[in-house]
Design a protein around this nucleic acid. Structure first.
Lengths: 174, 174
DNA sequence: CTCGCTGTTTGCGGATTTCGCAGAACTGGT
DNA sequence: ACCAGTTCTGCGAAATCCGCAAACAGCGAG
């Protein structure tokens, strides 16, 4: 019925060893899990059986691997939107310079619900943070009252979003 | 069986008028669609019936709305991961200054597969673009050979990612 | 080499969910 | 009041999801 798939699977399977972890504690993914993620990046609701056919695994096996990937926090299956469409009128990327413990500031930003995205960077900013707000007042409040008030924040520079041009989640689908 | 749900629905339903469009061509979302999106932001695979129970609609109605939201491009249901986990070792945010047609440059960036995110901004950069690459060589190539080569790009500044601290998709879930 | 341990895969039923469709209900315009 | 367009509902049929027990593979200890 699906003999050629099985054949290709056992070929793939050879080097897909047991899941291990590297130093960071980030789970090491084999080729099959990667292929599963790729399938779900194209369509987060794709049936397990269809994914199984694509990657050469049974429906139940795919289901278990997906569940594990979710439990481990390797991936999440979610709806993503353009915030502007959903009623958040003001967004900005904020570049931040820190004196002292950068990670502590990053953690503080992480705790703010208006902050969608926090990344520590090399370059003329120590941290980049994306802010999503309802309106100008809200944005102003977050940047001036809350972020600049954090002890250790030396300076900030804001880039207010005018238009979102691209937003994809297709890593590995090249 | 679910009488109280029906009751609460008709209350909600009153102000959920026909879908319209604002000037931008972006569909206007009513409270119910927003609630549906919110449900799917928590779990992209949540069954239609469960969503229906939460927002006060029948399973079929939810299904139709979700399909329309997907068709309209208002949202997409996808798996998202930390690129580092999936084998992309180098990422960077690139700030770009443009002379002339900013949107043309933004479109050119959008066409590059390594570019995950493009946004036009106000401030000292005209465009911010997020780049996801396999390694340093790849990143260098994209920034120097491809982005800087675009006619109209006056200057760029790169912020290489050191550590991703937060990445959420929970707009409206506050 | 064999035993046993562990983690993964497979193959099933049964329960749930998805899907397509036809009719009812609601809205806005004439 | 009526009509056209859209949305919602309620089904039955098909597909999918889920849990479980058995088969299987890797691996270290004896």
């Amino acid at each position: 019925m699906h003999s050629e798939v099985v054949a290709s699977r056992s070929a793939e399977q050879r080097d897909s060893s047991r899941e291990s972890r590297n130093g960071n504690g980030t789970p090491q993914l084999d080729a099959v899990s990667l292929a599963i993620i790729q399938q779900l990046q194209e369509d987060g609701r794709r049936p397990y059986a269809a994914i199984g056919k694509a990657v050469g695994l049974s429906e139940a096996a795919v289901r278990q691997r997906v569940q594990k990937l979710l439990d481990q926090g390797v991936m999440q299956i979610v709806a993503v939107t353009d915030p502007l469409t959903v009623g958040f009128r003001r967004q900005a990327m904020v570049g931040i310079n820190v004196e002292g413990d950068v990670e502590a500031i990053a953690d503080a930003l992480t705790d703010m619900s208006e902050v969608e995205y926090v990344v520590m960077t090399a370059g003329s900013f120590d941290i980049l943070a994306e802010i999503v707000c309802e309106d100008d007042d809200h944005l102003l409040d977050v940047i001036n009252k809350r972020i600049r008030a954090l002890p250790g924040v030396r300076s900030t520079e804001s880039f207010v979003y005018l238009k979102l041009k691209k937003q994809t989640y297709m890593w590995g689908t090249r």
